[in-house]
Simulated assay, not measured.
Amino acid sequence: MKRTTPTIRDVAAAAGVSVATVSKYMNGAQRFSAPVEARLKEAIEQLGYRSNPLARSMITGETRTIGLAILDIRNPYFTNIVKGANRIALRHDYTLLLVDTEENQEREQPLIEALAQRVDGVIISSRMQEDAMEWMTKLNKPVVLLGRNEQCPIPSVSNDSYLAGYMLARHLLNQGHRRIAYLGFAASRWDAERIRGAHTCLSEAGLKLDVHDAHAPSTLAGKAACSSVMLGPDRPEALICYNDLIALGFMKEALTLGFRLPQDLSVTGFDNVPYGEYAVPALTTVDLQSEKMGETAMLKLIDALAGKPDAGHVTLEPRLVVRESTARREEAP
């Protein structure tokens, strides 16, 4: 004979209480006397009852699910954000629902709007320019943005890209480099701030920053850009890359072209992705605390869902991580 799945009514009958009491106990909405809770616990365990999240969401209007929209799951920077956000979600009994927009700005809005209909709140990473994000305020759900937007009243968490760019430029100057270039990704909202930080630092030393652009924030784009930077008339002594993936692709191609690293070129990146430590040479970078960013964004969203006032924008401090891909400039004989 086929065993039937126990229902909330079965639990109520076994414990000698009402269905409403079982529901409130399961949802943590109300505490009861010790004897009543003991009977409820025993009935639930004996029957093997499990609450139906869909049914609960229809009653309460809550899904206990939080959406996270990221730009590229293949990029370890975003993987770390997911890891941090998921850790906090699980701690607060929420499930994370992930959407990868695949670096496609045209797909971002429809994907995020669809996601918002299925969750209690949304954390968003976006390549859109600040003046194009107003629609996010009309999702009718709490939203936390990864990266600050001065034009929209959306709670946000970001890292200090200006300071990170300044720190890398200062590190390279301290090593005696004077011809310093930047290989960026202009489509990113953070690219300009990283350039500004590096440019400010070099300007203070009376130097200029030579700026190049990669077509994507990927290892393949870094590899593709290498020959034009290294075989052109103004070959740099040191290079700041928009992220670690571009830097790693660039380094691989530079070695293929016969350049010695870091003797012929010091290379740096942003993000401190795990692979950078195991590259040859190991990559000097700025740790942007991506895992902590995911944790902080999730905490802000959970506070919003609980009706707590927003504490304002949070900026995470970058940390310089020096490895073997940068070295003091050797004087020409």
Rank of each mutant, 00 (worst) to 15 (best):
T4S: 00
R9Q: 12
G16W: 04
M26P: 04
N27T: 08
G28R: 08
F32C: 10
A34I: 09
A34R: 14
A38Q: 15
E45L: 12
E45H: 13
S51M: 01
S57P: 06
I66M: 10
R91S: 13
E102M: 11
N104K: 01
E106K: 13
R107N: 10
P110C: 08
I112S: 10
E113D: 09
A114Q: 14
A114F: 01
I123V: 15
S126P: 04
R127H: 06
N140T: 06
V144I: 12
L145I: 06
N149E: 06
C152P: 02
N159S: 11
S161G: 12
Y162D: 01
Y166P: 00
M167F: 00
R170Q: 14
H171F: 08
L172T: 08
Q175I: 01
Q175M: 13
S188I: 00
R196I: 00
T200R: 13
S203I: 03
A205L: 03
K208H: 10
V211E: 07
D213N: 14
L220P: 00
L220A: 15
A224N: 11
C226D: 07
S228F: 07
I240S: 07
I240Y: 07
A254L: 09
L255D: 09
T256E: 14
T256M: 09
V267Q: 02
T268C: 10
F270S: 02
F270G: 02
G276R: 04
T285S: 15
L288K: 05
L288P: 02
E291V: 03
T296F: 03
A311K: 14
S325Q: 01
R328D: 05
